[in-house]
Nucleic acid binder design. Structure first.
Lengths: 231, 231
DNA sequence: CGGGATCCGTAAAGATACTG
DNA sequence: CAGTATCTTTACGGATCCCG
């Protein structure tokens, strides 16, 4: 690889050797979002083959951008080094550039319910929710059966759980909409409140949960770079 | 290509489809430095094959980052669109990240006299030079004959000329050094004045030209992002 | 000389399957 | 959970050639 490199002393070229290989930028974005376990990363980058993911992680480790922690008995975790964390403003500005310049309609041709739900699961903020188990069911009527129903299960003190098969719990809030609307709202292309007001997103169930939805539902960690403050 | 894409709605993934293909970042860096003609770009990115350069330019045109001007009789020029020019801070911050984190010694293994001289030619500032033809000869004693001698010919009102064969003009200033020192100075890794003071760069000839060297010799357009102001 | 197109061999990536 | 193994497809690099 170092042989087939750009062979330029220009720093951009040297950075490109690290950042340009296919999937690398997306992978770094996923790691900046906090994924550390192999299969956790896989779910965030579902179309990347495990072989390639493994290879990229090793390359980034050699480049000093990623470090593997836990070589002992337990399963390894992958963390960004300081060198890797300092890529955050770059990745964010790339995202902001794309948000500004890439046609939204084109972007919205690449919807993926599982990916969206997995990202929502990660960014959901349980703090404003009731201090009991809370179940939110998403319904995308236009999707095929396997992707139509999703459940987010929030239990105090635990990680949020995502299911695509009915967990047979009482549901506190139903969210009925189409995938495009939900994705746009979550990406910050449109306002969740506005879509609810327009009837494009239908909330049924607990009115308290319903009213506080903008507090707990989160948004793309990149969206904060585009639309406004949300640390 | 749009078929083999990342298929992620994440804006970083969409930008990566444009920015990640091999050579694209380096090419954009070269265009941000001002190259507009096909072979002019080639000289800045000498290891990129013309076929691939042509392909990349077309892809970037489709992406709306580059526009081709002059489809008429004369030769086409390639310019960045506004969308492309807004990549400048991103490319610059990538360069700054590399400058900070990538080992200088590793970087300095990829020296290329022709590329360095071509970049120096471009960034040389004739304004502080005398209002007559001025010839500067570079001598890299350690290099093989073909790369040992370089001439920059500055004529008022004309583009700077670069020769690797003796143009048989009177030489106003000789610069004798090794390629590594010259590259590091030009990249901003070290100070030109310091290398001259240390004797690592030897200046022979016109003392006026010699004293004003930091005014006209320029530096990497990326170096300004690292070391200090030089618009 | 500028601006490519073509052909071909190699290297990387994708799709699936399988394992400790 | 955390990866390999294998096979096919695509992309890339290098050389050559073409045309105005």
């Amino acid at each position: 690889m170092s042989n087939s490199s750009y062979s330029q002393f220009c720093p951009v070229a040297m950075a490109a050797e690290i950042l340009s290989p296919r999937w690398t930028l997306v992978l770094l974005g996923e790691m900046l979002s906090g994924s550390t376990r192999f299969n956790e990363i896989r779910r965030g980058v579902p179309r990347m083959s495990p072989a390639l993911l493994s290879k990229r992680l090793k390359e980034l480790e050699v480049a000093g951008v990623v470090e593997r922690i836990g070589s002992n008995a337990d399963f390894p975790e992958y963390h960004l080094t300081e060198r890797g964390r300092e890529l955050r403003p770059i990745i964010m500005s790339i995202g902001a550039w794309a948000q500004k310049w890439i046609d939204t309609d084109v972007a919205m041709e690449k919807l993926d319910a599982q990916l969206l739900m997995w990202n929502m699961r990660r960014n959901l903020n349980p703090d404003p929710m009731p201090r009991r188990r809370t179940v939110v069911q998403f319904i995308y009527p236009e999707l095929p059966p396997r992707e139509k129903h999703w459940w987010l299960i929030v239990e105090p003190g635990q990680d949020v759980d995502l299911c695509s098969i009915d967990p047979a719990h009482d549901v506190d809030l139903y969210i009925t909409t189409n995938l495009k609307t939900m994705t746009k709202a979550w990406m910050g292309h449109t306002s969740l409140s506005k879509e609810v007001a327009d009837g494009a997103i239908l909330l049924t169930g607990d009115p308290v949960l319903s009213r506080s939805i903008t507090q707990w539902i989160g948004s793309s960690s990149l969206a904060c770079a585009y639309v406004g403050p949300r640390a």
